[in-house]
Design a protein around this nucleic acid. Structure first.
Lengths: 169, 169
DNA sequence: CCAAATATGTGCGTAGCGCACATATTTGGT
DNA sequence: ACCAAATATGTGCGCTACGCACATATTTGG
């Protein structure tokens, strides 16, 4: 039955996220969207508060307070942005190191569930996951949201498309 | 690369859980472990506070307050347990209906990501997911934790083993 | 040039959770 | 039969993470 497979994917996803979040809390002592924020800020230099808000799916004030926490933890710095209204978020050296630890912890958590499969099975699963993600109808923002905890050191050529809403114009 | 596949599974799991949690919040207006508690209480009649605590991975007081919320929402009732110390948690009629809505919303959320695959691909993915889960080294408690949001209407023969720590004795 | 749009920050409140402590019941050893 | 330890629940208090409403500063566009 198809719903049975959906149920299995739901169960596995829960197990995966449980382990990722537990690891993240051990690494930076924060939960919620805070670890994701650290990863996202590390993607591009000059992330703004507002872009971060949209990617994380938080309210504006929630994002401001999240950045407050990262700043008070000495992981992120607020600098003046190009536009006089914007701020530019930058990782400190400590923040960059924490971000690496965070992503390593995440990969290790997923691998601990994944390593029961043989290399051939893992490869088959990888192919299916790649196709599944590649066929999603995602905007550029959706892509950042889904990838908000992804490890850019290992995720070369992300399968997610970024052209939703860009056709027919 | 193997870590690339772990990264993809991490990304998909995040997307799956985002959608499940959003749906759960729309259905019962609660987040965190509250939806899982409703599902778990519905599994067996007479769930105790302490068993629930272990399955959800919460503190004792957190569980008491969680049940307080479910009771004040008229979804759950506290009844005297077999043991004079225990309480027995039961779903109200409203609670049982909310639980069904919750599980349907979850399956629909997963299916919305899954339905880009062909039937053959879905079946292959199902086989791999089944194997992946079946080979985990899980205790009976681990199994309940991983399955704490599973739909018992569609998950006949759960692949997860329940014999960790029961060998060598 | 000024209203609307954009971007950030703040006061205040809530949900969800943990720690430490209190209370009630049961179990087990003597 | 007794009493200490174990088991199970409830409570006071505080914290983290978040949203809503409002305030402020800068830029854009007609």
């Amino acid at each position: 039955m198809e719903t049975g497979i959906a149920n299995l994917l739901g169960a596995l996803s829960l197990a995966v996220m449980d382990r990722i979040e537990q690891g993240a809390r051990e690494v930076i002592g924060r939960g919620g969207e805070t670890p994701a924020a650290l990863v996202v800020i590390g993607y591009g230099q000059g992330m703004t508060n507002d872009k971060l808000r949209r990617i994380l799916g938080l309210s504006h004030s929630g994002t401001v307070r999240l950045v407050d926490r990262l700043v008070s933890d000495r992981l992120v710095e607020r600098r003046p942005g190009k536009d006089g209204r914007e701020i530019a978020l930058y990782l400190t050296a400590t923040g960059a190191a924490a971000r690496n630890d965070l992503m390593a912890s995440r990969l290790s958590a997923v691998a601990s569930l994944l390593d029961v499969l043989s290399p051939a099975e893992t490869k088959r699963l990888g192919t299916l996951l790649h196709e599944l993600l590649a066929r999603q109808d995602t905007s550029e923002l959706d892509r950042f949201t889904i990838c908000r905890r992804c490890d850019d050191r290992v995720c070369t050529n992300c399968p997610l498309p970024t052209n939703k809403g860009k056709r027919d114009r």
